[in-house]
Design a protein around this nucleic acid. Structure first.
Length: 585
RNA sequence: CGGUGAGUAGCGCAGCCUGGUAGCGCACCUGCCUUGGGAGCAGGGGGUCGCUGGUUCGAUUCCAGUCUCACCGACCA
């Protein structure tokens, strides 16, 4: 579907692009700074923004790319309300589980409502009412709609707002196999969407978080300012969020002779590094002991090789806890009898689960805390000296780790911005809301679901994060607010204005999205503004060039400058844009 | 919610320590000048100094409280 983006003349002097010369002090990341400076957005409240005309144009253009690819992938557009009744959320169980991020309020009759942070409940409710037969599936509904999440800490402009535009899609299938096909279709559509925007991104395996479900992939735009750490294998296709990334299996079991257990004095040696250097042993011969507590107050101990880091999410998922936190000094003292710094699994005061990282399985004659102030054990061995509840992958992977999926690869680490996330939901919501259908045998079955999100504003911000220089934004042409600008150097020069106007109208006639900078400003101001707002192509019409029948074309991304004869300008620009907008197949 | 810092003109900041009712740069308005990289000159408009209370003859300044915002941790498109 083509949504018309403009219905009036795009004369800069009559349009509205309030640019700012100085960098606003409260904008931390470059995309936030540039979107403010370029007059794309303005803040209304914490995490809540006005989309100014220029910003809205970029957003609409990205929405249309998403729309095209969703439609191509057989998803059907609809629109759901932002205000949702509490009952649905109570039915799915998320009214209690979702927490403060869900903005709740009451209407005049005291009935409870919330602002929709996501729409699994609403869509599943619709589907359970309308879908009766296996013949009606597969189905996939999507919408592009404003969401509200009362984030604890909104930041980085559109990157993490409380109110934000999201494309969310929900697929419904007869069984898990069919649901996988729907998932793959969406996955491929996502690949095309971000490719069309010219983004450098990775699809990575991810944790499902509060949405739930069996598995998921995140689409990560690579950027140093990204809030997520991801790893990818340099040899195979494996890539994952560090939260989720599996650590490689160390199978080697030490064959060293088992030495007798010995307690040693380690005064004031509280960190692994201190203990290792004090005892003159390698850090990887030590075991690090951590104690965690759940929201329900349950305690658990985690054992890791001294130089490894715990992945709290892995531990939390393994224990089946809703929340996880490091235990307090008091809790630790109560269960081990020792302050932090000398903890270990030997001689615990309370019976708590002891979860060891898989790497610990192969370690012998290790150093660990003795649960006494200033005391450590050396030559501790599992089986003889202590037991564990299980060996589980609970460590955080590091750059340079061996790939968990192939023989030769090493993991590389990146920072990424999560712009899309696809989930296999299974029957989590359909079961809770009793969304069923009759199969070919007339038997009632539960619907299988998937859900698929793209942060619209966040993707535009991520594109800027990845495409800018010291002069401002360098928009990928697919989501640039305009393809081309025409700058009249001196508006008092009738010849210059006439020629510039002529070029403007020719371009517009050819369907080029063009902005005519007709402002009565000095050239420097116009050049600076045009660079800042990141329009890919710029035509400059000046009296000197005009005397020879020529104008200048500058390509924003490369800085390349070409002189074009007047007659060729419009067609040359048109060709360049068409070539740049070719879709990948 | 915890930790840190900040609220003075549209934006960026100074003044506060040592109380006497506010200033600078940019932006804005008028005029002149200027027109290939945010020019120059002259004139001008705009502030209940976040809010509430206290101390004081007098508070932007000192004290207490409160609100808001930003940054660092858990959440997430």
């Amino acid at each position: 579907m083509d949504v018309p983006l403009w219905g009036c003349l795009m004369f800069y002097s009559r349009y509205f692009i309030p640019t700012i010369k100085e960098t606003p002090s409260d904008a931390e990341v470059i995309s936030h700074q540039l979107m403010l400076r370029a007059g794309m957005i303005r803040k209304l409240a914490s995490g809540i923004y006005n989309y100014l005309p220029l910003g809205l144009r970029s957003i609409r253009k990205f929405e249309n790319i998403v729309r095209e690819e969703m439609n191509k992938a057989d998803a059907i557009e609809m629109l759901m309300p932002s205000v949702q009744p509490a009952e649905l959320w109570q039915e799915s169980g998320r009214w209690a589980f979702y927490g403060k991020e869900l903005l709740r309020f009451k209407d005049r009759k005291d009935a409870e409502f919330c602002m929709g942070p996501t729409h699994e409940e609403v869509i599943t409710d619709m589907v359970r009412r309308e879908i009766k037969s296996y013949r009606q599936m597969p189905l996939n509904f999507y919408q592009i709609q404003t969401k509200f999440r009362d984030e604890i800490r909104p930041r980085f402009g559109l990157m993490r707002g409380r109110e934000f535009i999201m494309k969310d899609a929900y697929s419904f299938d007869v069984d898990s196999h069919a649901a996988d096909l729907s998932y793959n279709k969406m996955f491929n559509a996502y690949m095309r969407i971000f490719e069309r925007c010219g983004l450098n991104f990775r699809a990575v395996e991810a944790d499902t978080g509060s949405i739930g479900g069996s598995s998921s992939h995140e689409f990560m735009v690579l950027a140093d300012s990204g809030e997520d750490a991801i790893v990818s294998c340099d040899a195979c296709r494996y890539a994952a969020n560090v939260e989720k990334a599996e650590s490689p299996l160390f199978s080697a079991v030490s064959s060293a002779t088992i030495e007798p257990l010995q307690k040693v004095l380690t005064p004031e040696m509280k960190t692994i590094a201190d203990v290792a250097s004090f005892l003159k042993i390698a850090v990887d011969k030590t075991i690090k002991t951590l104690v965690y507590v759940s929201d329900a107050g349950e305690l658990a101990m985690a054992l890791l090789r001294g130089d490894h880091e715990l992945n709290e999410l892995k531990l939390k998922n393994h224990l089946g806890w809703d929340e996880i936190q490091m235990a307090t000094e008091e809790q630790i003292l109560a269960c081990t009898g020792s302050p932090v710094g000398f903890l270990g699994p030997i001689g615990l005061k309370q019976d708590i689960p002891v979860i060891a990282d898989r790497v610990v399985q192969g370690m012998t004659n290790v150093v660990l805390g003795a649960n006494e102030v200033d005391q450590h054990y050396i030559n501790a061995n599992r089986g003889r000296d202590f037991e564990v509840s299980g060996f589980v992958d609970i460590r955080t992977v590091e750059a340079g780790d061996a790939c968990p999926r192939c023989d030769s690869g090493k993991l590389e680490m990146w920072r990424g911005i999560e712009v899309g996330h696809v989930f296999k939901l299974g029957t989590k919501y359909s079961k809770a809301l009793n969304a069923t259908y009759l199969d070919a045998n007339g038997r009632e079955q539960i619907v299988f679901m998937g859900c698929y999100g793209i942060g619209i504003g966040r993707t535009v911000a991520a594109a800027i994060e990845q495409n800018h220089d010291e002069n401002g934004i360098i928009f990928p042409i697919a989501i640039a607010p305009f393809h081309c600008s025409v700058v009249a150097v001196n508006t008092k020069d009738a010849g210059v204005m006439a020629a510039a106007e002529e070029i403007y109208f020719c371009l517009e006639k050819l369907g080029v999205e063009v902005l005519f900078d007709d402002r009565d400003e000095r050239p420097g101001i116009k050049f600076k503004d045009n660079d800042l707002i990141g329009i890919p192509l710029r035509i400059v019409v000046g009296s000197k060039g005009l005397a020879e029948g020529k104008v200048e074309m500058k390509i924003r991304s490369t800085g390349e400058v070409k002189l074009l004869v007047l007659e060729e300008v419009a067609t040359t620009i048109k060709q360049l844009i068409d070539a740049a907008l070719v879709h990948p197949e």
